Simulated scan of single mutants.
Amino acid sequence: MTLSVQQRLAVTRLVAFDVDGVLTDGRLYYGPDGESLKVFHVRDGVGMKLLADQGIAVAVISAKDSPMLARRMQDLGVQHYFPGTKDKQACIQALCQALGIDAEQAVFVGDDMVDLVAMGWCGVGMAPADAYPIVQKQADLLLSSKGGEGVAREVADLILNAQNQYDSAYALSATPEFERRR
Rank of each mutant, 00 (worst) to 15 (best):
D167R: 02
Q105A: 15
D102Q: 14
A106P: 08
Y132N: 11
V124N: 07
D115C: 10
R153I: 08
A156G: 13
D140W: 00
Y132Q: 15
L141T: 01
W121I: 10
D130N: 15
L116Q: 05
S145M: 15
V124R: 02
V151T: 10
A129T: 03
V124E: 02
K146N: 11
V151I: 12
D102R: 14
A156Y: 09
V151R: 06
I159H: 08
I134P: 02
E149I: 05
V107P: 01
P128D: 10
G125M: 11
Q138T: 05
A118H: 02
V107Q: 02
Q165K: 15
V124K: 04
R153D: 14
G150L: 06
R153E: 13
A152S: 14
S144K: 12
V117N: 05
A131N: 06
G147E: 07
A139V: 08
I159R: 07
L116H: 01
G110H: 06
A103E: 10
L158F: 10
P133K: 05
D167E: 14
G123W: 01
D157M: 07
D130G: 08
G120D: 12
K146V: 07
E154P: 10
L143D: 08
V107S: 05
K137S: 15
A103D: 07
A162G: 12
S144F: 02
A169E: 01
G125F: 02
A131W: 00
L116N: 06
A118V: 03
L116E: 03
G123K: 06
A162S: 15
D111F: 03
A129F: 09
D157N: 13
P128Q: 05
A139Y: 05
F108N: 01
G150M: 09
D102N: 13
V117T: 14
R153P: 13
N161L: 11
F108I: 07
L158Y: 08
L142P: 08
D102H: 12
Q105M: 13
P128E: 07
Y166H: 13
G110Y: 01
D130E: 06
I101M: 06
L160Y: 08
G123S: 12
I159M: 14
C122Q: 01
I101T: 04
M119G: 02
G147T: 08
G150K: 07
E154V: 11
A118N: 04
M113R: 15
I134K: 13
N164E: 13
D112H: 09
S144P: 04
Y132C: 14
Q136P: 07
A152P: 11
A152N: 07
